[in-house]
Structure formats: structure tokens, C-alpha cells
Amino acid sequence: MMQIPCIWCGPRDENEFVCGGTSHIARPAVEAADQEWGEYLFFRDNPKGVHLERWRHVYGCGQWFNVARNTVTHEILHVYRMTDVPPA
């Protein structure tokens, strides 16, 4: 079981959390074309390697935060706030 370090509560078991998918996806303008809206809603990088993703500590503090995690090893590389800039 993964141990996820919540930025507020510290490391907890993965089943206290829910993954909210890819972080840092910018919402297009209302007048954007269908192509752009489709890309925004459905298309993802889905990397085999480091993935920047949102998690919520549902059965804890209830807060959202960002995680940089390797999708092959499940190693967690960084944890950062929703408003922080993504790690390089």
C-alpha cells in the first residue's frame, strides 16, 4: 500500500485518499473551438514515468494537494500545494 505524505497531516495509507487526476490543466476560454474543449476534457499525456496529479485527503483533513509520482514505481517525488508552481 502506498504511503502518501499529505502536506497537512503527514504520511498516511493510500486508502485515506482519492486521486483527482492530472494537475495543471488550464481551462480554455468559453469561445474556444470544439477541438480545444475536447482536448481539455478528455485528452491526457498519460505518462509512463513522472506524473503531476491531484490528490484529496478524503478521510483526513479533506484538503486537495499536488503530488509528483512515478507511475511505474509509484515513488512519490514531491508534494506541493494546489497553488504552487509545479516542480521542474
Partner: peptide, 13 residues
């Protein structure tokens, strides 16, 4: 396992 993964093992939870 409801988080993106390429690990062919699955989570114990």
C-alpha cells in the same frame, strides 16, 4: 486501482 499506473502489480488496499 483508481490512480494512474503502469505497474503490473496492483495495490494491496
Amino acid at each position: 486501482d483508481l490512480f494512474p499506473s503502469y505497474a503490473q502489480r496492483g495495490s494491496f488496499a
